[in-house]
Design a protein around this nucleic acid. Structure first.
Ligand SMILES: [Zn+2]
Ligand SMILES: [Zn+2]
Ligand SMILES: [Zn+2]
Ligand SMILES: [Zn+2]
Lengths: 161, 161
DNA sequence: AATCGTTATGTTATAGTATAACAACTTCAG
DNA sequence: CTGAAGTTGTTATACTATAACATAACGATT
């Protein structure tokens, strides 16, 4: 089961559950695949999950340094690469930033709703969207493989005023 | 009328027509809006349209320098910003690169098919895709504004072998 | 426990992408 | 001609990401 219902990022919720669930899932998935969720990788994953706002590699680095870690960019990028490879986080191309995956372990390619105001991101995985794209691509004989879908707009809470 | 039928990028065609049409449209659109298509901006647009492969800002800079221009990054980025603002080019987020717009002047947000092998890009504007996304977003109360859609895969010609 | 290949991390330097800030020049309406 | 707006030049710097090589931790095997 997923650790985050679609769109939950925009609803009021106890985010500690998100974090806890994400770590638990990560642990399980790494166990199944012989991936080693080391302390650093785990810490980076926690920082990515700190909230539903995508976070940049250098922001993570700053956090780690604030905690006494004395490291350099490659350390962070390696951790991020590991987490990406195991499907525990996604990269948001239009932000050069990273966000926790809401459906870890399941094979998928996320679709992201990004609030222009509060920066929070919700991950969707709507098969209709995927189908529409694949159909459209197929008409041109294009064989779709991976999709980057990042939608900017206003989340429910930021539409108010 | 658009200067490039959807998906033409992947078909055999006389690309000189693409370039010529793009420049003509650009000239018209800038005229209508009191945008000044200066020599530099025009040259950058030509370089972006050199083929259907997105091109990076620094690659453009190199080209310009090879032509005797002795400039710096801001010049290129300013030209790109101008062209983006007037809807004459698009930015491909997942490549940090720029590509000519196939429907300049028309209000739209492109959807891009990017061949992983030959790097060529075709621009779509499928209303079904847009609708599917907007519907999906609306279910969460999210008001979609701008969409980044970049599909990786293999173009018809690169699927052969 | 000692060994050894594999994986992970440390470290330094550098590549690649983008913008800030200010100066000089061009254009064009009045 | 003149002044305001827009454009380009120039220098420096911020931000994002990786190359390359050294060291350390791990884990299976002996
Ligand atoms: Zn949460
Ligand atoms: Zn918001
Ligand atoms: Zn063409
Ligand atoms: Zn191709």
């Amino acid at each position: 089961m997923s650790n985050s219902t679609s769109g939950q990022a925009f609803a009021k919720h106890d985010h500690r559950h998100c974090i806890k669930a994400a770590l638990k899932q990560a642990s399980r998935i790494c166990g199944e695949r012989n991936g080693r969720l080391t302390a650093q990788r785990k810490r980076v994953l926690e920082l990515v999950w700190k909230n539903h706002k995508p976070v940049g590699a250098y922001a993570i680095l700053e956090q780690l340094r604030a905690e006494g870690f004395n490291g350099a960019p490659p350390t962070v990028y390696r951790a991020l690469d590991f987490l990406l490879e195991h499907g525990l986080i996604h990269r948001i191309e239009s932000l050069n930033a990273y966000t926790g995956c809401a459906h870890p372990g399941e094979q998928h390619t996320g679709q992201f709703l990004i609030c222009s105001q509060c920066q929070r991101v919700a991950e969707l995985d709507d098969p209709k969207v995927k189908t529409a794209i694949c159909n459209s691509a197929a008409l041109l004989g294009f064989e779709a493989d991976h999709q980057v879908i990042e939608i900017r707009g206003l989340c429910p809470q930021c539409q108010d005023h």
